[in-house]
Write a protein that binds this DNA or RNA. Structure first.
Lengths: 232, 232
DNA sequence: ACAAAAGTGTTTGCGCTACACCCATGC
DNA sequence: GCATGGGTGTAGCGCAAACACTTTTGT
């Protein structure tokens, strides 16, 4: 351990950082993205209690002592949609002191991607309304700092799209390359070249040809599925 | 707002997510990187109280009610090094239930970059030792999950290096391009081509020629400094 | 004057982009 | 059989990597 300065204990004043715990609320807010009708959507809720009762906001909930943040996010999502085993990705922590109008609440945002048709929505507890909103039709006056959270999560999603493949299940289990390309185009908000897109996807080597073709569509497009033996 | 399913309130059972707060500790752990003698270093501490008293660990501290996470990170860093106005970047949240052996502690990791020579270390409070460790000489048995946190922060740093310029102050205010290149090489762990590196840096347009040359070095290298009028 | 480090352009190769036709299936 | 969408290859271009010599200063 060369080249290292070590200072032994001396009697200086106490560290201003203390090691006591303090009372706080930790929540997770989840940006659940869906893909319907060639549009990227996000799931928002309206609550009957709490702050911002007349505002749309992200589904979110308080973390409890016996769960991790991912557990918490999963719990919230299950409670809202019934869906389980969904891939979550941590996005960011929000800790502005006044982000909650009456108490101190720190929130960790996650994002998840589901197919709305697979997950019927159930209103539970203090949730008055649930709705899928088009990404370009999100109300301006969301509760808390959720506009910012959505913005950050969307940027995160777009960035991840660049190199990795979309995780989660925005598409059916078996899908055509055209469907996958449409998803990319709708998320990124631009048009892609069919041949170049296919090259890129095949290079990633994450799709498996199911041997089936999708019926009802001219041309007889091949159905693919994600390879499970591939990581990332 | 087309194509949106809205569900009105119905009397289903309560959401399992409750909105009550629960008792918890939130801390920040800071991966403070330094650059000395052509080696990337990280600042570790040993504590006289608390868990893992005989283990090295990242500087970290509990968040208080009147501060944001960044405030907290800054506070901890100031308390340890006296340095202020340092750029922090949030890395990740760690919420494993058993990551603290006796109580529930959630930590948010940050990273920062300083020049050790600018910031003499002061032992305060329950800190017994402080030391700069070479990145490849980090003790195996750090306290808590700090090995993981360091690993993640280092990856984060390397990724940021790819496109952005190194923020923070790992180098003197005025530095030569060779020094900057050495920093990149030492952080990334590989060798770079001098001419290509210079092209890349100049393209970024973030350096200002001070007009001075560094004395005592053959060749008379030009001293540069970061442009303050550039964002990102 | 000699050694050591700084500074500077050009060529090459690879990957990304642009682009058009044939094939399979639905109707 | 005709219209619609699926599937395929190649040429050009821009960016990044490879590469060597001259200039400056210290000793």
């Amino acid at each position: 351990m060369s080249n290292k300065k070590v200072f032994e204990q001396s009697n200086l004043q106490n560290l201003t950082v203390n090691t006591d715990s303090f009372e706080c609320s930790i929540t997770t807010d989840i940006a659940v993205f869906g893909y319907v009708d060639h549009r990227l959507k996000i799931l928002l809720t309206k609550r009957s209690v709490g702050e911002f009762t007349d505002h749309w906001m992200l589904p979110g909930g308080v973390m409890e002592g016996n769960e991790t943040l991912k557990d918490c996010a999963s719990k919230v999502l299950v409670a809202l949609t019934g869906v389980e085993n969904i891939h979550f990705e941590q996005v960011k922590v929000y800790s502005a002191i006044d982000r909650h109008p009456i108490k101190r609440v720190i929130t960790v945002s996650f994002y998840a991607m589901i197919r709305p048709e697979n997950h019927p929505l159930f209103l539970k507890g203090n949730v008055e309304q649930i709705a899928w909103f088009d990404m370009d039709e999100i109300p301006k006056n969301l509760g808390f700092d959720h506009s910012q959270i959505i913005h950050d999560a969307y940027m995160f999603l777009k960035n991840n799209l660049k190199d990795r493949l979309v995780m989660g299940e925005l598409l059916p289990k078996k899908f055509t390359l055209t469907e996958l390309q449409g998803l990319y185009e709708d998320i990124l908000g631009l048009q892609l070249d069919k041949r170049n897109f296919r090259k890129r996807i095949f290079q990633m080597d994450i799709l498996k040809n199911t041997g089936e073709v999708k019926a009802g569509i001219k041309g007889g497009p091949i159905l693919y599925e994600y390879r499970v033996d591939k990581k990332a």
